[in-house]
């Protein structure tokens, strides 16, 4: 059963420099209980997809397409209806955890506030919930952690608090926007492990946005690769990493230190005036004649979805 359908989502931003097409005709399904990793380089529109699911984009963004959650189109819900979905049905974990916590409240109060407001629990009960949740997130002394301010915690501890916040109300979908950015390897592993553990327990699905291939390989069921606002390949994680189809995917994997460490030639294109035809063709080693003037459409091929003329 799939729980989130994204159909032909296009997001553009009006800026002084021109119209930026941040997300261009993106369609994918997010099955329930699965872990889907959205990978791609910085600035390719990954976070914009995450933000548009919960409609958190600034006013100069234009969205078109559909984001279906159950029978509701999230793009057409009112703020009020969205408030009921945010946090309780779909929650998001941001990068920069320290900035995402209110500096004037204690950690515990920020967590128990959720239970007080959404579950109408008494303050004593909410406190108990919050403390147990902190304990589950790997704090040795949750009572002590409850009374700390975000500024007294390290980045990694705050990230765990943020994950606790996002998971507190047992959402069906967890969106994690680069949850491990700026953390050291050991902490990264710990946090991902924690995230997966709770995700399994609550039977939620996880939508992981990352540019960390190792993380994607380790925890994702499926991988979606983005390039310049488009999804160029969606495949099961083992397939994707064993034998990537799209030339960009091959190039990326080759550029990893554990492989050839050979970078893809050229630079990522401008989002304001993207190249004609296939977005990737100026950097592609296997380009065909057709690539430079025609845009490939996504097609299904041996269980994958791919946007490339090589597999037509």
């Amino acid at each position: 059963m799939s729980c989130l359908h994204i159909k032909h989502l296009t997001v553009t931003f009006e800026t002084l420099m021109g119209t930026v097409v941040a997300v261009d005709d993106v369609s994918f399904d997010h099955e329930s209980k699965e872990t889907l990793a959205l990978v791609g380089e910085t600035g390719c529109g990954k976070s914009v997809i995450a933000s548009s699911i919960l409609k958190l984009l600034p006013d100069n963004a234009n969205l078109s397409g559909e984001i279906l959650y159950g029978d509701k189109d999230l793009l057409r819900l009112s703020e009020r209806e969205l408030a009921d979905i945010r946090g309780q049905e779909i929650s998001i974990i941001f990068q920069n955890p320290t900035l995402a916590l209110n500096p004037v409240y204690r950690i515990g109060d920020q967590i128990s506030e959720l239970f007080r407001v959404h579950k109408r629990a008494s303050s004593k009960k909410s406190k108990a919930y919050a403390t147990s949740l902190l304990g589950r997130m790997g704090f040795k002394d949750p009572e002590h952690a409850f009374h700390m301010y975000p500024s007294q915690f390290s980045e990694g501890m705050n990230q765990r608090v943020l994950i606790a916040l996002a998971l507190a109300l047992h959402p069906k979908i967890i969106i994690a926007d680069e949850p491990t950015k700026g953390l050291d390897d050991q902490l990264k592993e710990e946090i991902l492990k924690e995230l997966m553990k709770i995700k399994e327990e609550k039977e939620s699905s996880l939508f992981l946005i990352t540019h960390d291939f190792d993380a994607a390989r380790n925890i994702a069921d499926r991988v979606a690769l983005m390039y310049c606002g488009q999804i160029v390949e969606i495949a099961l994680s083992p397939d994707f990493f064993d034998e990537p189809f799209h030339p960009y995917a091959r190039g990326l994997l080759k550029s990893l230190p554990s492989h050839d460490f050979a970078p893809i030639p050229g630079a990522s294109p401008s989002m304001i005036s993207p190249p004609e035809g296939c977005r990737f063709h100026p950097r592609c080693a296997e380009r065909l004649e057709v690539c430079s003037h025609e845009m490939p459409e996504p097609i299904k091929k041996s269980g994958r979805i791919i946007r490339c003329f090589l597999y037509r």
Partner: peptide, 14 residues
């Protein structure tokens, strides 16, 4: 600031 955004994401009213 981000914490306002994150409060919004947790479904708190305006």
């Amino acid at each position: 600031m981000n914490f306002v955004l994150s409060s919004k994401c947790l479904g708190f009213s305006d």
